[in-house]
Design a protein around this nucleic acid. Sequence first.
DNA 1: TTGTTGACGCTCA
DNA 2: CTGAGCGCCAACA
Length: 106
Amino acid sequence: MSFNDDVFEVVRLIPNGRVTSYGAIAKYLGDARASRRIGWALNKSFTVNPSVPAHRVVNRLGMLSGALHFPPARSMAQELENEGIIVKEGQVVELDRLFWDPMTEL
DNA sequence: TTGTTGACGCTCA
DNA sequence: CTGAGCGCCAACA
């Protein structure tokens, strides 16, 4: 199934220390309404190789809405901070500066 | 087969 | 400014 693969591919292209949103990815894939499905795709991202940096994907406000779905062993916020991204109150700080839009960057 | 759900995003009150 | 509601559509019970 290619939708998931496309999602993974785009997510893997996100530069280190940057983040993007479900909507941006959906739009890039041609279906701006697929944002909800991006989450589904990312669920499986933990079972594929090479691994997908799903922690770099947040909702359009920069909130870590998917943090609860991360494997217990990993912390979404922590992974982000490891890359230099500041996460406060479950939200990415300076989102506008760290945001990476595949539509304009690719 | 039908109904509910959700890692979203937008609009309206 | 805040909160509630709605459209989307695949996965799941």
